[in-house]
Each structure stands twice: as structure tokens, then as C-alpha cells.
Nucleic acid binder design. Sequence first.
DNA 1: GTAATTCCTCTAGCCGCTAGAGGTTCAAGG
DNA 2: CCTTGAACCTCTAGCGGCTAGAGGAATTAC
Lengths: 137, 137
Amino acid sequence: MYAIGELSQRTGVKVPTIRFYEDKGLLPHPARTAGNQRRYDEAALSRLLFIRHTRDLGLPLADVEALLTLEGTTGEDLNRAHDIAERQLTDIRHRIERLKRLEAELERISKACDGQHDHVCAVLHAFGDHDTCEGSH
Amino acid sequence: MYAIGELSQRTGVKVPTIRFYEDKGLLPHPARTAGNQRRYDEAALSRLLFIRHTRDLGLPLADVEALLTLEGTTGEDLNRAHDIAERQLTDIRHRIERLKRLEAELERISKACDGQHDHVCAVLHAFGDHDTCEGSH
DNA sequence: GTAATTCCTCTAGCCGCTAGAGGTTCAAGG
DNA sequence: CCTTGAACCTCTAGCGGCTAGAGGAATTAC
């Protein structure tokens, strides 16, 4: 049985965020001391680690919640978990693609300034100039 | 001189967002008709395109504002524009790295379910399991 | 002239936290 | 046992970057 601060340290989730998750219903209401302070057990710890991990993976809280309710179910329902993973994977691949295009463009912009910037630096122009960048966004 | 709706169409920035930018001071107050409707000129158009482009690049509005105030300056100050580009570039590269790690992990998770999910699907376990994923996040 | 569309302002809401105020409880040291 | 100081409590408000809706006025097309 540990206090919220210790749970925070063990999971890397900040104290106010833990309380926030409780408010949202992602974490069950924990036991309380006589003085109204929260006390957590191992189950809470692993549940919070699960939340943290899925959040790190980029899942919105709604998806995290969906996964949490899937715990203990069997068969058909579990396809939903698979769906969430697939959906997330597609999403992440899109994001990577997009970021790579932006990277290329920022390189172009950054180089535009190397050397001459006496009167009118090309960087500012480059920031505003969408035409000269390859691809679309 | 066009209305806000046309400016929106030409730039791809939604109408409420344009007004939001005006509130934030990123766009100057435009001219108004006798009936109090906004009318924009070419200068507003190009400024809004600049904003849109930099936002697409992932810059926060504060950076966009900083760049906008750099317009027309010379010499030293322009290094700041270059700095913003560099900083953003570094940031994007980090994000790409991170996303690639997540992609690998989601692939692992997704595959964990292919085939057997009769009793306890491995996907849920995989979502909660940080230990088996390579790298850190 | 009238009807449909666009515009106006204003408030509130979204996500996922984060910060602060003002007060209470706990654990350790003397 | 008593004091101190850290950690806890609840509550409200704020962040970024919009987005949605209410209720009403202006414009445009026919």
C-alpha cells in the first residue's frame, strides 16, 4: 500500500495526472486512509503502467479506456484490441511520412540562410514559400 | 477585397481559425464594410499563407509570431529565423525517431494476435508489456 | 422583394494535462 | 508527546490550437 507520490515515482506518471485519470474513470477509486489520503496496491500500479505505456504509444485516452474494458473478455471482442493496434499503426506511418517531408523542407529552409544574410535573408522567404517544396501537406 | 469565406477558401484556413488568429494578434485587424464585415486584401492573404505554411511545418504559434515580427529586419535578427528553423529541424528528427520505435512496437503487438485469440489474446498483454519492446520511450 | 447564404459576436467545449491557492495529514526527529 | 516540514487533499483556472453552436445581422442572387 503506497501513497500517490510513490505510485507516481514507480510509474513515471505525475501526481496530478494520476488524479486526473481517476476522475476520468481510467483508474478505480483507491482505498483511503482515515485522513482521506489515497493508498494504492499492486493492481493499481500495473493498471497505471498499462495506461502509461499505451499513452506513450500515442493512443488517445478513449482507446486506452476501450482496451481496459476488454481485459478479461474473450473471442470476438478481442478483435477490437487488434483493430486499435492496426489503426494506430496506420496512423503512425502516416505521421512518419509527413514528418519526413517536413524534415526535407526544413533542411532546405535552414540552408537558405547559410552564408548570406545581409539584406534580405532567404530563410524568411523560405518559411513562407510553399511552392518550392516538394510534395504536399 | 474579399470576405472571410473567400480568404478561407484561398488559404485552406477555416473561418473561425482566421478570426482566432486575428484575436491572437497574428493577423492585423482587416478593413470592415459598412455592415461590419471583414474585407481582406492581398497582403492579408500572403500573411495568412505564411502562417499556414509555418503551422504545417509544426511551428507553435509563438514561433510563427516571432518570425512575423522578423519581417523587414536585417542582419543579426535574422539569425533568429535561422535558429527557429534549426530548432524545429532537430525537434522533427527526434519525433521521427520516436515514432519509428513506436511503429516497430505496434507491429509486434499487432502480430501478437494473428491466429490465436481464443482465450487470452496476446494483444492486450502486449499493449501492457513494455519490457519486451526494444529501445526506450 | 425575398430567400438563401454568409457573415457577425459571444460563449463553451475539446484533449490531456499542468499550475496554483489554501488547507489537512502524515512520518521522522527530538 | 510534540513539533516540523514534506506530502497530501480539493478546487478552480489555464495552456495550445482550435472547433462548435446560439442567436442575430448583412449580403448576394434571382
